[in-house]
Design a protein around this nucleic acid. Sequence first.
RNA 1: GGCGGCGUAGCUCAGUGGUAGAGCAGGGGAAUCAUAAUCCCUUGGUCGGCGGUUCAAAUCCGUCCGCCGCUACCA
Length: 406
Amino acid sequence: MTRRFYVTTPIYYVNGAPHIGHAYTSIAADVMARFHRLAGHDVFFLTGTDEHGQKVEQAAQAAGVEPQAFVDRIAADFRDMADSMAISYDDFIRTTEPRHVTGAQALWERVAQNDAIYLGAYEGWYALRDECFYGEDELTTGPDGQKLAPTGAPVEWVKEPSYFFRLSAFQDRLLELYEQCPEFLGPHGARNEIISFVRQGLRDLSISRTSFKWGIPVPGDEAHVMYVWFDALANYLSALGFPDMDGARAAYWPADLHLVGKDIARFHAVYWPAFLMAAGIDVPSRIFANGWWTVEGQKMSKSIGNVIDPRDLVREFGLDAVRFFLLREVPFGGDSDLSRKALITRNNVELANDLGNLAQRTLSLVAKNCEAMILRGVSQRLRISSFSHRWRCCPSLWPRNWNAVP
RNA sequence: GGCGGCGUAGCUCAGUGGUAGAGCAGGGGAAUCAUAAUCCCUUGGUCGGCGGUUCAAAUCCGUCCGCCGCUACCA
């Protein structure tokens, strides 16, 4: 039987434009997908967008458009980014699609049937002005004894009805999973942090909200929408046609690899397997967290204005050069810095000088000594024919040297 | 505060008990099938400090200094 391989990127949250970090995770997943296809495996490669939640609702409001119109626009931009980076996804799922709403609600019902969800109250210090909850340790006390948020807004103790997931009941089973399947979570640093987090003890997780509407309704209680992480994580199943586990795609489950950014490792390595265990569904084989990129030594941020759109890099340096650099520059799992100098050096030395020079030497030898012909079998095995074809048709496709600009 | 990681050549880092390594940068040279390319040689380090275990420590233990991460419902 042909080996199946199911690999996913995170679904990207649509409250901002795609940047180099999104492209990086997607490229890494793409390379895995392409590798397994070359190995003859039956690959399913999923990417998509996460489109619910209060932040999106607010962003849409700020932009003066309906949430659906807002997410349509941003999701299209993420899809364009994936296409521009030659991400060979088999499906692009959006959490606002009916198939996902069906899948997420079915997962909820499965978990609820197994008695892992109960109705309680989410309570905490809430600042009406900021529309946000704060932790006890973040608060300060004003001169009149009024508790204040870090922003200076007055807070009050409020209770909001909420459904809770019995996360605390899964602590031992999670630790057992990490212990028995050391490959489940990588790299080592992320694994250690997650294990120590779970060992500290898990509290039940609030998984519904009544304070906003932009989300998937909780089955049987329309006053609530699902907490975005319950909604979002379900995408890996709903894209396979869940809850229909007899469909063609269902055979890809359990996923072989969820590739994620290190900021969301915990949601994938703790909440996700717990939800699945509660639903009686197999857990994925592996979660791997990649690191972050700084830009010219600085953290990427909107306020600094150094957020890089990967498509801009591609326009300047070419697609393969950018893809090569991102994967070559850093030991996978670690953080790294994206600088013009490093990008230019990698491309000049390794692609243009080393590889380009080797190909150039080979071709000129062939031209001089072999009547410019390569035997068909040989050329197919070495894939030289496509090289020489591209060379004749379009020399600009060859690696180019770049002059370093300070 | 607690837990964890890191500190090795000018720079980025590999190396987890047995004569200190790579790439880039610097210096010198060669050859031609080859681009401002390539190839060879070479300079350069008290392996953060101190103490301990050992025949032997970058590597194990203790301690100190410095940097970083995690410490839940903000995706």
